Amino acid sequence: MDSLVVLVLCLSCLLLLSLWRQSSGRGKLPPGPTPLPVIGNILQIGIKDISKSLTNLSKVYGPVFTLYFGLKPIVVLHGYEAVKEALIDLGEEFSGRGIFPLAERANRGFGIVFSNGKKWKEIRRFSLMTLRNFGMGKRSIEDRVQEEARCLVEELRKTKASPCDPTFILGCAPCNVICSIIFHKRFDYKDQQFLNLMEKLNENIKILSSPWIQICNNFSPIIDYFPGTHNKLLKNVAFMKSYILEKVKEHQESMDMNNPQDFIDCFLMKMEKEKHNQPSEFTIESLENTAVDLFGAGTETTSTTLRYALLLLLKHPEVTAKVQEEIERVIGRNRSPCMQDRSHMPYTDAVVHEVQRYIDLLPTSLPHAVTCDIKFRNYLIPKGTTILISLTSVLHDNKEFPNPEMFDPHHFLDEGGNFKKSKYFMPFSAGKRICVGEALAGMELFLFLTSILQNFNLKSLVDPKNLDTTPVVNGFASVPPFYQLCFIPV
């Protein structure tokens, strides 16, 4: 009986604490739906499609509103004006990374994606500088992407125009580009180590996009005490870190300090320079996690976009025909596509942009946080508050993009057929937390897609009208449904 009384008292205290925290903070924060004790607004949000729920709530509470995930307040920004004001106009104040408990377990605050403060700034600055020195957006990395595009075309030829699921092959190409940047090595598509790495990356994007992960991140005790797919994700990350550590040891034994070959060499050189400046942010643990982040951000996002792009091109054969006509006119058949071609191919450029806009790969991006107490639109948001960005509300804005739910390359073309930029184009987020590999991803999408369409016609196994382009999961990332196609050599 005594234990029951204690339990009831504990629960009562928890409920009172929950109510007090919510009521004391709500006077400062933007308005929002009334949260339930302990669980907050979790029942009012469709976990399978958070973005749709945010759109519905914005119609009631406006472009800036507050939700509670458990006891934790989260300020939501919906629509271009609110997102721009926060991420661009007040970029420094909104540059923090929001709480992501599962990532905390995986990387302990290291790396480039989930770190904060001085650690994040130094690692991000170093990573950007190193990638630029190796030619991100310049010639040397373009050579690597072109080489991988040629290998991709050869792998597709091996399908002999038979029906195939493109998931694996389209994942190999961007993964190999990242391998060449980090390890100075590309792998054969049949290499077992490479296959294991690909498998872990593919599993992780599916797990991260599941409703279960949303629950884990908002009720963090689940991570330590409950079984579930989150444990598989943590094991996959541990596998990748151990693999990278092996490569780091190989580099330490063979590195030429006067001739760095890749990202690992550059990081080890930085560690050597910083060894007298303790404590340094440049450690082996930081290198492991930064490399894992580059793999995660640079492989599955690009391969998922490529997979979605081919599905949309199957669905819209008239678009595919126009792209192939432009390829034939500008590039021809006797040389590989290059980035200089893009400025002469406005329709193809528009298609690449429209694919990214339409699929809305990361509907709410990753959570941000404010780095200080900030007054925002007459609300006071306390330091450390998590900020949720609705990228969907920007990419699918119906004023900027008429009929935003329709796939239409003319969203990025003017009346004369010239490519038209849009400030609403934010597939990689915006501001200080914009994806480090934005330029690389854009290069890969253009070169891989043009190389495929230069060499193959795409054949659907069903009537294009019957192809479903609805994402199968739409949590962290929008993942396309399973499909097969035939690559018919031109």
Rank of each mutant, 00 (worst) to 15 (best):
V76H: 02
G296V: 15
V479S: 11
F267S: 04
H396M: 15
I123F: 10
P404N: 06
S162Q: 15
E104P: 09
I99W: 14
L447F: 07
G431I: 07
G79L: 00
A161V: 04
G137C: 12
N236R: 02
G332Q: 04
V462S: 07
E326I: 03
E148G: 00
M345F: 00
I387T: 05
K138N: 13
D256P: 12
V6P: 08
R139G: 09
K235T: 09
L43R: 06
S460P: 10
P427M: 10
F194I: 11
R139H: 09
C172M: 13
C175Q: 04
P211C: 08
Q252R: 13
V351P: 00
A82E: 04
V76S: 02
I264E: 03
I205H: 10
P30D: 01
D256S: 11
Q278W: 11
E85Y: 10
N378D: 09
E203R: 03
Y61L: 00
C486Y: 09
K119L: 10
P404Q: 04
S127K: 02
S451R: 05
K235A: 09
K84T: 13
L77N: 00
L208S: 10
E155T: 06
T283H: 14
P33V: 00
T364Q: 15
G25L: 11
F183G: 04
G416P: 05
G98N: 08
A441G: 08
F226K: 03
F226Q: 02
N457V: 08
R157E: 13
G416M: 08
N474L: 05
P409S: 01
N455F: 03
Y379L: 04
V113I: 13
V490W: 09
F482K: 14
I387P: 00
E203P: 06
I389L: 09
H78G: 05
G417Q: 08
G135A: 12
L4G: 04
L453N: 02
G96V: 10
K241S: 06
K432R: 15
D262C: 14
G70F: 05
Y68Q: 08
H78A: 09
Y347R: 01
Y68K: 08
Q192P: 13
H316G: 01
K275Q: 15
T392R: 12
T348Y: 01
E328A: 12
T229W: 09
V83S: 04
E300R: 08
D341E: 02
P211S: 11
P464N: 07
I45S: 05
K160N: 13
P337G: 02
T159G: 05
L314V: 11
A149S: 08
E274R: 08
S286Q: 15
G296C: 13
Q278L: 07
P367R: 04
G27L: 12
Q146K: 14
S23E: 05
Q356N: 06
E281F: 13
A439V: 09
N217P: 12
L447E: 02
T34Q: 15
G171R: 14
P404L: 03
R357G: 00
N403E: 13
S460G: 07
P317F: 03
P481S: 05
G298P: 03
L234N: 10
F295I: 12
H78Q: 08
I387R: 00
H411G: 01
S343P: 05
F487V: 02
I74M: 10
R21Y: 10
V473S: 10
E326S: 01
F412T: 00
D414R: 02
